[in-house]
Amino acid sequence: MNQFQYARPSKPQAAIRAVAKDANAQFIAGGTNLVDLMKRGVMTPQKLVDINRLPLNKIERQNNGLRLGALALNSAVADDKLVRERQPLLVQALNAGASAQLRNMATVGGNMLQRTRCPYFYDTTMPCNKRAPGTGCGALEGINRMHAIFGFSDKCIAVHPSDMSVALVALDATVLVSGPQGDRRIPFADFHRLPGDTPQKDTNLERGELITAVDIPDAPFTRHVSYYKVRERASYAFALVSAAAALELDGNTIKAARLALGGVAHKPWRLTAAEQVLVGKPATEATFRQAAEVAMQGAKAFKYNEYKLKLAPNTLVQALKTATAA
């Protein structure tokens, strides 16, 4: 691990200034990912700005929705009464992530900003455009069984590992950001980026911008929801593929639907076209299959992740079945 400076401001503006003026500074909250990356030399910030003292951990009602403070712990959000009543999909996604110990440290903002678990990103001796732009993508012709089938580029085929973010993109959340230029709101679907030619940038945050909260608008998805995560063991593993499904049902007819996939792209993968297929149709496996077919349009696999072309639609169908039965 490299040596670094450490600051722990108590006001958001001080934290923002500290990072904005220093290209080698970095916010740290729970540190569940960043500390690992620093130990391995993957990330080498010269300065850490610890934001844990900032008053950003509230979970509250706000403007016909819920507002999750950026520093609210994953476990606190998952256990919160308001969240459990109004956004059970988010609760399921949070509880599918990591372990109880990690959820007790990880924050809402940190979860969104966690880096890919692509092994080529983690090994500083291997090529990786995300870690070291211009060195190439090790995964493209490497061991890519965990990698993307949507939205990748020839520069990067990594996937975003967050479960929480898959639910948040499905729930039309908005990210609240404060920065040197003031405050702004970023729709969740626009928060993470596709890799394109600059895979080193995971998100559309500008230097010095600090996530302060996430807003989730009220929606009628309080019962028929499912976050279905397929992984190689029953718990504590990243998704091979995960699917978030939220339905509003009128009898057996689908009135509204939200769908997203995880483990398939550089960002949580919202499926608006597939949602449209569902609306107005009966909640049957045949309908779900149609939606899954639409969802998979444009998917392309690499040597070792061919299985995702089948697993992703199957997982989506299973999530829809589970949501319907809930």
Binding site: G138, I143, E232, A234, S235, Y236
Partner: peptide, 30 residues
Amino acid sequence: ALMEHAMIDDRFGRYVTKDLADYHVPVHAD
């Protein structure tokens, strides 16, 4: 039977499974 698998990228002769997040052993739930 179900999960343990250390993988090497033969181009580099290096393991790509480097920790217990990549190399799975059973957890209680398994």
